[in-house]
């Protein structure tokens, strides 16, 4: 009796195993085999295909000369795009800046850019604190800038928004010694919160430490390019 049950168990186990094997073979045949065949066919096709080729040494030499000249000409054209004067590159992912003159790196350091915070007061009033990317120009420069606080600065602090030219809107000394305006309300300025340099904490402006800001202020003139990415 016991022997009969063992034989029955073995035969059902065999059925299960052959079922699993069948499923695995089907999966292999459907999901793997076509790609193996694909790779083999491509390998053969790549090796079989012939392209008409010129091997005359004189022609080749002439072509190499012509191409080298063309590449040199194209390199010159590409170099012409690089500004000759000072320009600033800001990496908003890693909060770093690079001050260049032509191809030469003059100074690099940490800065702070937009925090990517979306401040929501209600459905209609929302502010996204992000530093815009692209090519900008220094539109104006100033020393001892005064910050005229926009509405969001009050809303962010849970304060009532004052009248447009109310005294409480003007803050002195918080932007450092210099400010370089990029347009659309964005600036490069200093900060009181130097320990946050290198972190994305601003409302969209670019903050630098005092020395870096001084260097940027002295090297960049009105019209100088600022590239933010």
């Amino acid at each position: 009796m016991a022997g009969f049950f063992i034989i029955q168990k073995i035969s059902s186990l065999k059925r299960v195993l052959s079922g699993i094997l069948l499923i695995m073979t089907t999966c292999f045949a459907v999901f793997v085999l076509p790609f193996w065949v694909q790779q083999i066919v491509l390998f053969v096709a790549n090796n079989v295909q012939t392209e008409r080729m010129e091997n005359n040494p004189e022609t080749i030499e002439h072509e190499v000369y012509r191409l080298n000249l063309n590449i040199e000409r194209l390199n010159k054209k590409l170099d012409a795009f690089i500004p000759k004067n000072h320009y600033l590159i800001v990496n908003s992912t890693h909060n770093e800046f690079y001050l260049f003159k032509g191809k030469e790196l003059v100074r690099k350091g940490k800065c702070s850019t937009g925090s990517y915070m979306l401040l929501e007061k209600n459905e209609n009033e929302k502010w996204l604190f992000k530093t815009p990317k692209g090519e900008f120009k220094i539109r104006s420069k100033t020393t001892n800038p005064v910050w005229k606080k926009p509405d969001w600065a009050f809303i962010e602090e849970g304060l009532p928004v004052p009248a447009p030219n109310h005294n409480s809107r003007f803050e002195y000394g918080v932007l450092g010694d210099y400010a370089l305006y990029l347009g659309q309300g964005y600036m490069i300025h200093g900060t009181l919160w130097k320990r946050y340099l290198g972190l994305p904490v601003t409302h969209g402006c670019i903050r630098m430490n005092d020395d870096d800001l001084k260097a940027a202020y002295s090297k960049l003139s009105i019209g100088s390019k600022v590239y933010i990415f």
């Binding site: 022609t59 080749i60 072509e63 190499v64 194209l74």
Partner: peptide, 17 residues
């Protein structure tokens, strides 16, 4: 397109260009 472009010496230069 020139037949010399397929030459292994010329090909990298053509691609660079």
């Amino acid at each position: 397109i020139n037949p010399s472009f397929s030459n292994p010496v010329v090909k990298p230069l053509v691609k660079t260009e």
